[in-house]
Amino acid sequence: MNKTAKIFVTGHRGMVGSALMRRLKAAGFDNVLTHGRNELDLLNQRDVTRLLAAERPDYIFIAAAKLGGIQAHNVYRADFLYQNLMIEASLIRGAHQADT
């Protein structure tokens, strides 16, 4: 990857996303785009597509996910799976629609 490439990291405040941010910074990547969940709902296809069309990232790293404790995952298995799949699908479709 080119050091000047625009990289969009979702879930940048989480365990995986923050580790990825540290690695990118250490490797000299400084054109990294992030949006917290209060700025962008990754389940909202229209908003995701608009953002990707406006920002045109070269790479997207998906580290965002719906998380909960052991009990929550046991009780709401389908909900967690659905929301996590929709986050991924929203980003993939948005990138395709934005031609990025």
Rank of each mutant, 00 (worst) to 15 (best):
L42G: 01
L20A: 08
V75C: 03
S90E: 01
T49R: 09
A98L: 08
N31I: 03
L24T: 02
E39P: 02
K66C: 06
V75N: 13
F80M: 08
G94S: 03
D47Y: 05
R23T: 11
D41S: 11
V75L: 12
T49F: 11
I87S: 03
F8V: 04
M1T: 10
H73Q: 15
P57R: 04
A53E: 07
T100A: 09
G68Y: 10
D47F: 06
A98V: 07
Y59L: 09
N2G: 06
N74H: 15
D30L: 11
L33V: 13
Q83M: 12
Y59R: 09
N74Y: 08
K6V: 06
F61Y: 12
N38S: 14
G17Q: 08
L91I: 08
S90N: 14
R13T: 15
K25Y: 06
N2K: 15
M1F: 11
N38E: 15
E55A: 13
P57A: 01
I92G: 00
R56I: 01
A95W: 07
K66Q: 13
L81K: 14
Q71R: 15
I60P: 01
L43W: 03
A26G: 08
T100M: 11
Q71H: 12
G11N: 04
I70P: 13
A98H: 02
L51F: 13
E39G: 01
A95E: 02
I92F: 10
I70L: 14
